Simulated scan of single mutants.
Amino acid sequence: MRFLDLAKNRYTTKNYNPDRKIPAEKIEELKEILQLSPSSINSQSWKFLFVSDENKKRELADASYWNAQRINEASHLVVFTAIDDIAKFERQIKENLPEGAVNYYNKFLKPKEEAEIKSWLQHQVYLSLGFFLSACASMEIDSTPMEGIQNEEYDRILQLDSYKTLFSVAIGYRNPEDRNQPSLNPKLRLPLEQVIQSI
């Protein structure tokens, strides 16, 4: 299928089929795809947690406001976290990245305020989100990206150390009666000429 067709058919799933789970081999493929996500200077300032344990998923659902039902129904919940320990990040890039990338960080980012550095680290994780949603669509896996969660509760439940939760994505297979799917509820987008400009 052409990517344009995938984009037209992909949507934020509201209701999942709780009886249909994503096969293990597809989950492993998604993990590898996330590992290959792009980031500035190949910084890889992230950790991704795949949650399939129903008890843990329920705990996280309880910390997810109006998103609880879709998390409980979904096959998996993927939690996207950003590194929150700058010293740890600096050790990581020194050990794993070429000198040029480390020099870029040292010259242009390290002199900034801590909050600005952490913001830059978090922006890299958002790059991986688009990559992940597209991968899911290409594999006919439905998805629901969610910022409507209690981030600090996620951190506590998952016992995160040096990382902070940014958002999560429920993945699975839609309930055929989900009213949000494009065949039942056409996508609403601003006109192309309003959002795209050719120069």
Rank of each mutant, 00 (worst) to 15 (best):
L77W: 02
A74R: 00
V102R: 04
M139P: 14
D84C: 05
I86H: 00
R91Q: 13
I86P: 00
M139A: 14
Q124Y: 05
K94C: 14
L133K: 06
K94T: 07
S119K: 14
A87Y: 08
S75Y: 01
K94D: 13
T144S: 00
F131Q: 12
I83Y: 04
I86S: 02
A68E: 14
T81M: 13
E95Q: 12
Y104I: 14
E140S: 11
E99H: 09
N96S: 06
H76Q: 09
K110W: 06
I83S: 10
A101T: 14
L133D: 11
F80C: 08
A74H: 01
W120T: 04
L129C: 07
V79D: 11
E113A: 09
A74D: 01
H123R: 06
V102S: 08
K118G: 07
R91N: 15
S128F: 04
I71Q: 06
Y105L: 00
Y105Q: 00
L77F: 09
Q69A: 12
I71G: 00
W120D: 06
V79C: 08
S75H: 05
A87Q: 07
R91P: 09
K118H: 02
K112H: 11
E113R: 04
I83H: 03
A82G: 06
K110I: 03
K118M: 03
N72P: 08
A82M: 08
K118Q: 10
W120P: 04
S134N: 10
E116Q: 10
L133V: 12
K88T: 06
Y104R: 15
L109S: 01
